[in-house]
C-alpha cells in the first residue's frame, strides 16, 4: 500500500482528509465558541463560526446554579481512584493468569471472562438493590467498587494478561535465581516492564469512569454528589429545556482539560492503544 504518491494524488488525499475532519473537529470548536457567545447570538443566522460578541457571565452561572467545583472534584477523584484500583486488581490478576500455574486457573479465567459477556447495564437493577441494602445509594461507592472489581475491569485484566504472556519466561527465572519471590518478581520485574501497557489501559479506564452516565443517574440523587456528565444535563430552565449556553460552557470546562492532556501526550494515547495487545 505504501508506495510513493503522485503530487496530484497527494493533494486529493489531503483534501479528502480535511473534509472528513469536519465532523470530528467542528463540534469541539462550536462548543467552545458558542459557550462564550451571548445567548442572543448562539442561534443567530447566519451561524457565527467566530463569535462576534463575548459574554463571559455564562461561565460564572455554571458555578452559581450547581456546586460545579464539587461535581468536578467528584468526577476527578472517582476516576483517579477507579484507575489506580483497576490497575492494581487487574495487573495482579492478569499476571497470575499469564504466569503462575495454580489449580483451576483455566476454569477461573473463564469465569472471570464471563464478565465481558455481562455488561453492567444487565446487572444494574440488582446492583441498585444491593447498594440500597448496604446503605450506599447516593454515595460514590457504587461508582468506585463496580468498575474496579466488576465487569469493566475484566477487559483490563484480559489486556494485561495478553501483555504478560509475551514477557520472556527466562527473565522471571533469572529473578528467581537472583532470590526474588513471586510478589517481588511481579513488583520489580513484571510491573516495570508493563509500564507502556499499564499507561494505555490507565487512560481508557480513566475515560470510562469519567464518561459513566447510567450509573450516576441510577445511584446518585443529590446535586453535591453528582458527577460531571450527570451535572451537565441538569442545567435546564423551568420547563426542562436545556439552557444551551450554560450547558455548553460546562461542557467546555469538562472536555477541555482532557483534550489538552491529549494534545500534549497524543502519541502515548494513540500508539499505546495500538500496541497494547488489544489486537487480540
Amino acid at each position: 500500500m505504501k508506495t510513493d504518491l503522485s503530487p496530484r494524488l497527494r493533494v486529493a488525499l489531503y483534501g479528502l482528509m480535511c473534509v472528513l475532519l469536519i465532523p470530528f473537529v467542528f463540534p469541539t470548536w462550536w462548543m467552545v465558541t458558542s459557550s462564550i457567545k451571548p445567548i442572543s447570538d448562539i442561534f443567530a443566522f447566519p451561524p457565527q463560526l467566530i463569535p462576534q460578541n463575548y459574554d463571559w457571565t455564562t461561565y460564572s452561572k455554571v458555578f452559581e446554579l450547581q456546586p460545579f467545583v464539587q461535581q468536578y472534584w467528584n468526577s476527578a477523584y472517582i476516576a483517579a481512584v477507579v484507575t489506580i484500583g483497576t490497575m492494581v486488581v487487574s495487573s495482579m490478576a492478569g499476571y497470575a493468569f499469564a504466569r503462575i500455574r495454580f489449580p483451576y486457573a483455566d476454569t477461573i479465567f473463564m469465569i472471570v471472562l464471563l464478565g465481558l459477556l455481562i455488561p453492567s447495564e444487565v446487572t444494574i437493577v440488582p446492583l441498585f438493590q444491593m447498594f440500597l441494602k448496604a446503605g450506599m445509594v447516593n454515595t460514590h461507592w457504587p461508582l468506585i467498587l463496580v468498575p474496579i472489581f466488576g465487569a469493566p475491569s475484566v477487559f483490563v485484566t484480559f489486556v494485561m494478561r495478553q501483555f504478560f504472556v509475551t514477557l520472556p519466561a527466562e527473565l522471571e527465572e533469572a529473578a528467581r535465581v537472583d532470590g526474588l519471590g513471586r510478589f517481588k518478581i511481579f513488583r520489580k520485574i513484571a510491573l516495570p516492564l508493563a509500564k507502556p501497557a499499564l499507561a494505555s489501559v490507565a487512560i481508557f479506564t480513566f475515560l470510562h469512569s469519567w464518561n459513566l452516565f447510567l450509573e450516576p443517574i441510577v445511584f446518585l440523587s443529590s446535586a453535591d454528589k453528582f458527577t460531571l456528565p450527570q451535572a451537565l444535563t441538569q442545567y435546564t430552565d423551568a420547563y426542562g429545556g436545556p439552557m444551551w449556553n450554560i450547558q455548553l460552557a460546562a461542557a467546555t470546562l469538562t472536555a477541555l482539560p482532557v483534550l489538552i492532556v491529549f494534545i500534549i501526550a497524543q502519541k502515548q494515547f494513540v500508539e499505546g492503544l495500538a500496541h497494547t495487545g488489544l489486537k487480540g
Partner: peptide, 15 residues
C-alpha cells in the same frame, strides 16, 4: 480524528 474519543461523552452529545 482520534480527538472525539477523549472528549467527555456527554459534552460531545450536548454539542
Amino acid at each position: 480524528f482520534f480527538s472525539p474519543v477523549v472528549v467527555s461523552l456527554v459534552a460531545w452529545t450536548i454539542v
